[in-house]
Design a protein around this nucleic acid. Structure first.
Length: 775
DNA sequence: CAGTGAGCGAGCTTCCGCTTGACTT
């Protein structure tokens, strides 16, 4: 047995390090945290100094038992989790869970996975930093208290199964408030004036595009300006040249990788992380959850070699980037290729594309600045005092631009400024045309997944390991939807001046179309309003930054962790109690109008199952009628007429086989119901007009399909069927599904065999995957 | 996987941060 056991957080890291350390060392992974607060309880003993009630995480029991055994046999255990708050806590939890002895345990840290860094770490062991552990404990307990006291309040006051938390609720707030800004945005237009000139150089024509710095508010003013240019002569007033430079972006962190993969490759943040994980596990890149810009000396040396070999020594500029991110913990390197001399890797298309991006970004970060020359030409108009300005940019030395340029979130409408033909002061230019084009102000952009991550990181909210899960949580809770929206037609005016004549025309454009943007739902908006009303301090954009300061004080040993928690908890919990007692249901109820048929009030509100319309007052004797909103409707925008239309369903369309056939609209769209069987309508069917003949057709089509997917049925047990599904044959019994052992052919199954499979408790379908809320 | 929505009440839902496999209808 090995003398030394080293425990790190990630198995891929364990494998690499084992290679460095030799046969006296065995390296294992903890797979992250091994202990946590119990999921089913609050897990914090409020009365007893907020003592956390830890347990070994259920999915880590087996692993901990194995580690315990290995640790017992080792002479020394080296706890090598990451050097940050969470990593320190992992070491401490391992110490407790594995029942380690102080004299047999050492704590080591390293930021880079290199042989040198690890040898150095082994030479400089230390003890577990209890202050840092306390800081983590404060973080953990605070998040638990906020999450597990706020969420149940939402269940009571708004809707069951909702959630709130320090991170997710701020993410939702950002999206809701951005939507408000957009709603309140006042679009104005102005006329932008551009001119196109032609000059002859050695017999060939060159075009010069120039713009007027002023804009005109109305078409009339633009027209007046164009008139004032009648008969004008255009002369170059000045040619000004200025040197400029561009510098490369720093190497990737998790958030910048997510942003660039979104902008350049169109990846969702979850996809970026999935692909990066594959690259990491196959040893192609360094760790992908990091907030550090740092590159190891080894990597810098590789970059230097690579750049000078590929492009020449003048392209090399080794740089050290420092982080500006709030609360960055920098336990890892930046995300970079493991071997910079590999510009390409094997793998699927996504892996290749993401790797290419990482390679370019890393290499470019160590390259020279690009050197530019910016040219500004001002052009006089003989008939008025205005001046046109033409701008050009010439790259004198490409530098890092040879490899990579970071994208921006703003779509660049202005064409990139290219080379201007040579011009001289006093030179006359021939005018092609002048255009005055109506342009509109644009509302702030809706968030994409990646731009939301960027914003959260700026606010210091969330960590590299939680950005992607947070984005998915707020969508799973249906606070936010990621959607495409088509946009609308808009017309604008263009005035054109050619040969001293002005032509005016109206042009159409499509505006406001959105792709994969985040929109708040009615529920997201309502929950945000609730939290803003009663718990503004928690969803304050500075809340995390402020508590982080206190965590730092705890880590420095200048504050007791439970003193901090107590100070936070007292007013927070009082607010929970008072809101529980005093606040009524928070349903966002809004009176839409009066139902002309019954004369009753019509409301929209959020009910137990989401947004709905209610006809009749809640307090009235007669039970109100209810109907859920359709997927594309919102409480904010629905009209009385649309609301009333929802009550046209369920609609009886006729009788088939002595049973009623009806049409209704459910969670998954319109369907036909017959004899307690459901059949979805096709996209081409209109639920408002569909008739009995077509309904029967759909019912029979479904029966036909079902009989084809049925492999076996048993007369003795009508509830048991062997069916053919997406993942191959399976057994269905009383609405539960069971796997068939691989060594048995489905068509040969007997009733007895089926029953024994169904009755075997080992085969009980796993519950966690049947969560109904996930779509 | 489809119907619901008051009242009654049991039992369920939930946080953030660290890590990967498991393997669903």
């Amino acid at each position: 047995m090995s003398k030394n056991l080293v425990i790190v957080e990630s198995p891929a890291k364990a494998k690499t390090i084992e290679g460095f350390l030799g046969k006296d060392f065995i390296v294992k992974s903890s797979f992250g945290h091994v202990m946590d607060l119990s999921k089913t309880h609050l897990g914090v003993d409020i009365e007893n100094g907020f003592e956390p009630q830890y347990e070994i995480s259920p999915d880590k029991k087996k692993l901990v038992a194995e580690l315990k055994k290995t640790a017992k046999e080792a002479e020394m255990v080296w706890l090598a989790s990451d050097e940050d708050r969470e990593g320190e806590a992992i070491s401490w939890h391992l110490f407790k869970a594995l029942n380690l002895k102080e004299e047999k345990t050492k704590r080591i840290v390293f930021h880079e996975i290199t042989k040198q860094a690890i040898s150095r770490a082994i030479d400089q062991p230390r003890g577990i930093d209890t202050h840092l552990v306390s800081a983590q404990q404060a973080r953990r307990v605070l998040d638990r208290l906020v999450g597990y006291e706020l969420s149940p309040l939402l269940w009571k006051k708004v809707k069951p199964a909702l959630s709130a938390g320090r991170v997710q609720s701020v993410a939702v707030r950002l999206i809701v408030e951005r939507e408000d800004e957009i709603k309140n945005f006042n679009v104005t237009s102005a006329f932008r004036v551009t001119a196109q000139f032609v000059i002859q150089i050695n017999g060939t024509e060159h075009l010069v595009n120039a713009e007027l710095p002023e804009r005109f508010e109305t078409a009339q003013m633009a027209h007046l300006f164009l008139e004032s240019c009648f008969g004008a002569i255009y002369t170059v007033h000045a040619v000004e040249k200025k040197p400029g430079k561009k510098s490369p972006a720093p190497p990737f962190t998790t958030s910048t990788l997510q942003q660039e993969a979104s902008r350049k490759l169109g990846f969702s943040v979850a996809n970026t992380m999935r692909v990066a994980q594959q690259l990491y596990e196959s040893g192609k890149i360094t760790y992908m959850r990091t907030d550090s810009f740092n590159l190891s000396d080894l990597a810098l040396k590789m970059a230097q070699n690579e750049i000078s070999e590929r492009f020449g020594a003048e392209y090399v500029k080794i740089r050290k980037y420092t982080t500006k991110t709030k609360g960055a913990q920098e336990a890892h390197e930046a995300i970079r290729p493991t071997y910079l001399n590999k510009a390409e890797v094997s793998g699927n298309a996504d892996e290749k594309r993401l790797y290419d991006l990482i390679w370019k970004r890393t290499v470019a970060s160590q390259m020279a600045d690009a050197e530019l020359e910016r040219t500004v030409v001002t052009i006089n108009i003989s008939t008025n005092i205005n001046q046109f300005i033409a701008q050009g940019e010439v790259i004198l030395f490409e530098g890092f631009l040879k490899v990579y340029l970071e994208s921006t979130d703003e779509d660049n409408n202005d064409a990139t400024e290219g080379l201007l033909p040579p011009m001289k002061k006093g030179q006359q230019l021939k005018l092609n045309e002048i255009l005055a084009t109506e342009r509109f102000t644009r509302h702030p952009a809706r968030y994409t997944e990646a731009s939301l991550v960027k914003k959260l990181e700026e606010l210091g909210i969330g960590r590299p390991s939680t950005f992607a899960p947070t984005i998915s949580t707020i969508q799973k809770r249906e606070y936010v939807v990621k959607e495409d929206r088509p946009g609308e037609k808009r017309s604008f005016k263009v005035l054109q001046l050619v040969h001293d004549k002005i032509k005016e025309k109206t042009v159409n454009e499509n505006t406001g179309q959105e792709k994969a943007k985040l929109f708040p739902t009615d529920i997201g908006t309502l929950v945000n309003k609730f939290l803003l009303t009663h718990f503004e301090s928690i969803i304050d954009y500075n809340f995390t930054a402020n508590v982080e300061k206190e965590f730092d004080e705890i880590a420095d040993g200048n504050k007791e962790w439970n003193v901090m928690i107590k100070a936070f908890y007292k007013p927070f919990h009082e607010k929970i109690v008072s809101t529980t007692e005093n606040a009524g249901k928070f349903s966002g109820e809004k009176l839409l109008g009066v139902d002309p048929v019954s004369g009753k009030n019509v409301f929209v509100k959020v009910g137990r199952f989401g947004p709905m319309v209610q006809i009749g007052d809640t307090e009235s004797e007669e039970k109100p009628r209810f109907s859920g909103l359709r997927k594309n409707q919102s409480m904010d925008e629905i009209s009385l007429e649309e609301a009333l239309k929802l009550f046209d369903f369920p609609r009886t369309v006729g009788i088939f086989e002595d049973k009623e056939v009806s049409v209704a609209i459910g969670r998954f769209g319109p369907y036909v119901k017959h004899n307690s069987q459901f059949v979805s309508l096709q996209k081409t069917d209109d639920p408002n007009t569909i008739e009995i003949e077509r309904a029967i057709e759909l019912i029979e089509a479904k029966r036909n399909k079902e009989s084809q997917s049925t492999i076996k049925e048993f007369d003795q047990e009508p509830e048991l069927k062997v069916l053919n599904g997406r993942y191959g044959p399976y057994i269905s019994f009383k609405k539960k599904n069971f796997k068939i052992p691989k060594d048995i052919a489905a068509e040969n199954l007997t009733l007895e065999q089926c029953m024994s499979i169904v009755k075997d408790p080992d085969n009980t379908p796993k519950k966690s995957f049947f969560k109904r809320k996930t779509k």
